[in-house]
Write a protein that binds this DNA or RNA. Structure first.
Length: 421
RNA sequence: GCGAUCGUAGCUCAGUUGGUUAGAGCGCCGGUUUGUGGUACCGGAGGUCGCGGGUUCGAACCCCGUCGAUCGCCCCA
């Protein structure tokens, strides 16, 4: 692997050079997403890869570890702090405000591309990673949540991903959420000494996170922790009911996950993740970073960026993780593989390949190395038709070969007959 | 930030209890078959065994450090 000899610089930790079957799977995920988002009439949006640090710091919350340690921030030549986007949502929210996209409300947008987080890489987690993303902004009704989730569910089905289930929860409105949080702190504080060290720390900084602790010492107390349902207002209860009814109507399977939370304060109501079922092939393929697609309703975000209160809901999914679940994809088979068996006929080969490609057939040309071996190399390329170009008694000979009944055989023969006419 | 495992040709890996010029497969380059031919045969190039130090008569192999990778913890927008 990485040699330190010589002067070649190494790739940055946590970046990937994606090639071969992985690249094919990656492209397949993106192409499927583009197709499905059109079915749901989400409009394509292209966003900057970096923003003022403020965009992320204010939306995420100034005090969290995320802002202080886990963002790729730097100063530009003017001394302004900029940050490579760690997520799509904050940038889209900023654009909504600065570009007056309110005029398009409710706005359904989709995008995909690279994101950056300064973290220790592990399976399914990189410093530069890639996500697909879908947002509905300016829609307060539960129908928006339902449509968004139906799209996510259809995407996973069209990708052929099995053994992944929608885990669904509600965080209620701001008041419900705050009351629940207070009750949780009270509950866990009573047994603080028996919690894991990590969770004793969480108690002060992020008590909701104790609910998804992996430590068995914590899990005993998680089971009988206060449930959000006891704190939901009538409106919040009704909202969640409409979401679940809508999902049932849409045929989207879901499971209530009372411990599913979001780390950030701007989330309200619906929170969800598509997670591999325990013991499934998907779970084995993903390792410990297993959430495939996640999101929720973030009615509190716009205000943190100085905009008018705006209801919105969205999700994002890691392309690399999805690619790990879709299986190996091979590049498309070539229509024609061309062996130029003598250098004297190189230009004939070029003319033939151009004519074939112009006709809409894909072609690969082999014209380097030992002339005797070019046929062998061309034959190794997976192609529907094999064409060799050679000279016999001063005449140019096109020799075509394919499996019986291959439609491209006749097309190539016709193209060659018209060559030079 | 913490922990575990790993680091030998372009790639995937062998390398026995430390013992002479470090191997295989694939790939690459060249040659053989006077040949309408893909899977054969022969040959070649390519490695200061991640890097630095130590132990030893002798280190790819043992010890320390360092860099890198992988996986996990923390975190997870």
């Amino acid at each position: 692997m990485a040699k330190t000899s010589g002067k070649t610089p190494q790739a940055i930790r946590g970046t990937q050079d994606i090639f071969g079957p992985d690249a094919e799977s990656f492209a397949h995920v993106v192409e499927t997403f583009e197709r499905v988002r059109r079915l749901y009439r989400f409009r394509r949006v292209e966003m900057p890869v970096f923003e003022k640090t403020e965009v992320f710091a204010r939306s995420i919350g100034e005090t969290t570890d995320i802002v202080s340690k886990e963002m790729y921030s730097f100063e530009d030549r003017g001394g302004e702090s900029l940050t490579l986007r760690p997520e799509f949502t904050a940038g889209i929210a900023r654009a909504w405000i600065t570009n007056g996209w309110k005029q398009h409300a409710p706005l359904k947008v989709a995008t995909h591309g690279p994101l950056f987080r300064y973290e220790r890489p592990q399976k399914g987690r990189y410093r530069q990673f890639h996500q697909i993303d879908a947002e509905i902004i300016g829609a307060a009704e539960p129908q928006a949540d339902v449509e968004l989730l139906a799209m996510a569910d259809q995407l996973l089905r069209e990708l052929g991903i099995e053994g992944v289930t929608l885990q669904l929860n509600t965080l209620g409105d701001a008041d419900s959420r705050e009351a629940w949080r207070a009750a949780l702190v009270e509950h866990f504080r009573a047994v603080k000494g028996e919690l894991s060290e990590d969770s004793q720390e969480r108690l002060e900084r992020n008590p909701l996170r104790i609910l998804d602790s992996k430590d068995p010492r914590d899990r005993r107390f998680v089971a009988d922790a206060p449930k959000i349902d006891s704190f939901l207002s009538d409106e919040a209860q009704a909202f969640f009911g409409q979401v679940t009814d809508g999902l049932d109507a849409a045929g989207v399977k879901w499971r209530r996950a009372e411990s599913l939370v979001r780390g950030l304060d701007y989330y309200r109501h619906t929170a969800f993740e598509f997670v591999p079922d325990e013991g499934s092939a998907a779970a084995a393929a993903l390792g410990s970073q297993s959430t495939v697609l996640g999101g929720g309703r973030y009615d509190g975000l716009m205000e943190s960026l100085g905009g008018a209160a705006t209801p919105a809901v969205g999700w994002a999914a890691g392309i690399e993780r999805l690619a790990m679940l879709v299986g190996e994809k091979q590049p498309e088979i070539a229509d024609v593989s061309i062996a130029v068996e003598t250098d004297a006929l190189l230009n004939t080969g070029i003319a033939a390949s151009t004519a074939i490609r112009t006709a809409g057939l894909s072609a690969e040309i082999v014209a380097t190395g030992s002339p005797r071996k070019r046929y062998d190399k061309a034959a190794k390329i997976n192609a529907r038709v094999l064409l060799s170009i050679s000279a016999k008694d001063g005449e140019t000979v096109f020799n075509l070969k394919s499996a019986p009944g291959v439609e491209e055989y006749d097309r190539v023969r016709d193209i060659l007959e018209n060559l030079g006419k």
